[in-house]
Amino acid sequence: MTGRAHPGTIVFVDESTGKEDSKPVAQVPESVAFALVDGRRESVVRVVARLGNGTRTLTSYGADGRVLSTLVQRVDGKS
């Protein structure tokens, strides 16, 4: 695993409301601020939340705009 300095802020976008919120990386869990890709620690600079079919999908993007990881969450009521 290689460590990399984070640019400093992460923009969280909620597509269902259009709200954007920028947070200092110090206020975000490390597991959210970085993604492990092929054993490398990549900085996450943008997280976009999208709702669909009882789920919320969080897509984490790197500084170059690439998708680093996706996290599927169950919204209440999904079984």
Partner: peptide
Amino acid sequence: VYWGETYGMPNFESDMACGSD
């Protein structure tokens, strides 16, 4: 816990994650 606070939905849970790798 963090995501629950962020979205005001403490009961939701992660289902799966997939890395670009």
